[in-house]
Design a protein around this nucleic acid. Sequence first.
DNA 1: GCGGATCAACCTGTATACAGACTGTATCAC
DNA 2: GTGATACAGTCTGTATACAGGTTGATCCGC
Lengths: 241, 241
Amino acid sequence: MSQTLSAQLRLRDLILSGELQPGERLSEPSVAERLGASRTPVRAALVRLAEEGLVKPIPSGGFAVNSFAEEEIHDAIELRGTLEGHAARLAAERGAPGGTLAEMRRLLVRMDEATTPPISEDGFTDYVALNAHFHELLVEAAGSAVVARQIGRVVALPFASPSGFVLAQAALPASQRVLVVAQEHHRAVVEAIEHREAARAEALMREHARLARRNLELVLHDQDSLRLVRGGVLIRRRGWA
Amino acid sequence: MSQTLSAQLRLRDLILSGELQPGERLSEPSVAERLGASRTPVRAALVRLAEEGLVKPIPSGGFAVNSFAEEEIHDAIELRGTLEGHAARLAAERGAPGGTLAEMRRLLVRMDEATTPPISEDGFTDYVALNAHFHELLVEAAGSAVVARQIGRVVALPFASPSGFVLAQAALPASQRVLVVAQEHHRAVVEAIEHREAARAEALMREHARLARRNLELVLHDQDSLRLVRGGVLIRRRGWA
DNA sequence: GCGGATCAACCTGTATACAGACTGTATCAC
DNA sequence: GTGATACAGTCTGTATACAGGTTGATCCGC
């Protein structure tokens, strides 16, 4: 693996885990020393993380760890809903590849299994992985590289991703009901794509993203569950320090 | 200005003007010599152009000038429609800043003036600038940095931008009618945002982008007008070499 | 004449040196 | 005590050297 990629991955981890605090300046020499690389790959990694949004350029040069207002995350999730709705609509209008749809149906069955009560902790973990895969397949079903790229950029922020709040939400009382509804959305959108019901497919994915928005609000006011959200340390809560 | 930024801008110009052919490999030393900079800022510029999409990473390392299939541009324009629809909906739902709306209304008047028949060539040029500004204001009206950033990324490709085909279309017979319709969309979307008619605002911007798609098709089969499209040389036409 | 191996040129990825700019602190004047 | 200023440390942006790998061409064998 290249030094640049390695630096990018490890730096991302350091930021998302909170080891590097939001607002902290990331000077190239210090990061280079910490990662055991030279400045050149570190700089390249910083540029890419800035593209992702985890890191923000400082006007006078260099980068600092970014932080995110509650409203921004709100917007990012809603935007994901619109984009996934766009993808679902395209898939329905143009027809999705049979193989992709078949795989989505297989996933549905496995997600059902993972979420039949009582849901174990492993069940939740499995669900997160399956859910992520399902959303990837949805993008694939749209058959558009342009759309895939764009969705990839929104989802790069972990708390905007489809599984961002699932694990944290598992600790909350309403978790099972939310999962049931989410799973119903999954099932319905596959059906809508199969039946070429474009408007329905689009509306479903928008509503689906709303579940994440609701989870965001619940989790934000529960210090403990927020710790379970990857990158949660980067979130600035309303009326907080 | 930094060497990196300068290299980025000039390299972009070289690519969009067709001086660097699609598919051509851009080796860092050759580009550096051509631009009179060293490899370091050239490499940084290439990374950013790759982010924009004008340049594509080669598996074995380095970059080549990218090219775009007709379908990709189709998809990019439709995606822009969805995103601008999203922005218009947000503006209507949340309420747009009064100053922004007022400026949009002033722009409408000036665009009317630029497009009252007979439309001069200057009229078209003016319209392109005003139209670009209008679309920027629409994004501003949504009041979401996340959305603005995302739209900015789609619009970075010049043929996916709101004014991408206006100039080329000016050479076509149906140009005046298209402009009348486009301008009606502009007027209606401002009205919809003012009246908080979110669904209408969204639908209008989607339909608005469809005009660009129609222009794309017209222009693609007219070699002469294609030359007027910035970045037109990068477009791979269906069933062409 | 054609396919494969060898070799040379070139290119990328990385490390590092250097100049100019910036930040923050400590000192001095008021 | 407060504000401005000078200075030192540090950082970024850039140039350049070097190693490993890739590409393309030439030459040889069949």
